[in-house]
Lab assay of single mutants.
Amino acid sequence: TETRTFTDEREARRFEQEARDNGKDVQVRESNGKFEVRVK
């Protein structure tokens, strides 16, 4: 599991989409204006 934290939602979404395109299981959590993207 890899976790990346972004402050920019667009960057978080781009990373999320890229991971999904690669067939990964992705979860995005938002807290305090930060976006935590977990990739399995």
Rank of each mutant, 00 (worst) to 15 (best):
D21A: 15
G33D: 04
F35S: 01
G33C: 03
K24N: 10
E18N: 08
N22L: 14
R38K: 10
S31D: 10
R20S: 04
N32V: 03
R4A: 05
D25P: 05
Q17C: 12
R10S: 12
T5P: 02
R13Y: 07
R38M: 14
K34I: 15
E11H: 05
A12I: 01
T3E: 05
R20K: 09
T7I: 09
E9I: 10
A12H: 00
K24G: 07
N32T: 03
D8C: 14
Q27D: 11
Q27G: 05
A19S: 08
F6N: 00
G23H: 07
G33N: 05
S31K: 13
E2A: 07
E36Q: 08
G33R: 02
R29E: 09
Q27L: 12
F35V: 04
G33L: 02
K40C: 15
T7D: 12
A19P: 01
R10W: 13
R13G: 03
D8G: 03
V39K: 02
N22K: 13
N22Q: 14
K34W: 12
E16H: 03
R14A: 13
F6M: 00
V28A: 03
Q17S: 07
V39M: 06
E18L: 12
V37C: 03
F35M: 03
Q27W: 14
K24D: 06
V28M: 10
E30Q: 11
E2L: 13
E9K: 06
V37S: 01
A12Q: 01
N32R: 06
R13L: 08
E2R: 08
T1P: 08
K40D: 10
F15W: 10
R29W: 14
D25S: 11
R13N: 04
V26T: 06
A19L: 10
K34Q: 12
E11S: 07
T5I: 15
D25C: 14
V26D: 01
E2M: 13
E30K: 11
T7K: 07
R10L: 11
E36F: 13
E30R: 10
R38Q: 12
F6Q: 00
F6K: 00
R4K: 08
R10I: 11
V28Q: 02
T3S: 08
E36G: 02
R29A: 08
T1W: 15
K40A: 12
R10F: 11
K34M: 14
D25T: 11
R29K: 11
E2H: 11
D25N: 09
R29Q: 10
F15T: 01
T7G: 07
E11Q: 07
G33Q: 03
V39D: 02
R4V: 09
V26I: 04
E16W: 12
D8A: 04
V37F: 01
E2V: 13
E2T: 11
D21F: 10
V28N: 02
D25I: 13
V39G: 02
E30D: 06
R4S: 05
K40Y: 14
D25L: 12
G23N: 06
D25F: 13
T1F: 14
E9F: 07
K24W: 15
T7H: 08
R29I: 15
R14C: 10
T7Q: 08
K40G: 12
V39N: 02
V26A: 06
T1E: 13
D21G: 09
T3A: 06
D21W: 10
D21T: 10
D8K: 03
E36K: 04
D8I: 04
T3I: 14
G23R: 04
Q27N: 09
K24A: 11
K34D: 04
F35Q: 01
N32Q: 08
Q17M: 09
T3Y: 13
F6T: 00
T7W: 11
F35H: 02
G23E: 03
K34S: 10
R38P: 02
R20Y: 05
N22C: 14
N22V: 08
Q27V: 13
F15Q: 01
N22P: 02
E36P: 01
N22S: 13
V26R: 00
G23Y: 06
V37D: 01
S31H: 14
T3N: 06
F15P: 00
T1V: 13
F15E: 02
T3F: 12
G23W: 04
V26W: 02
V37I: 07
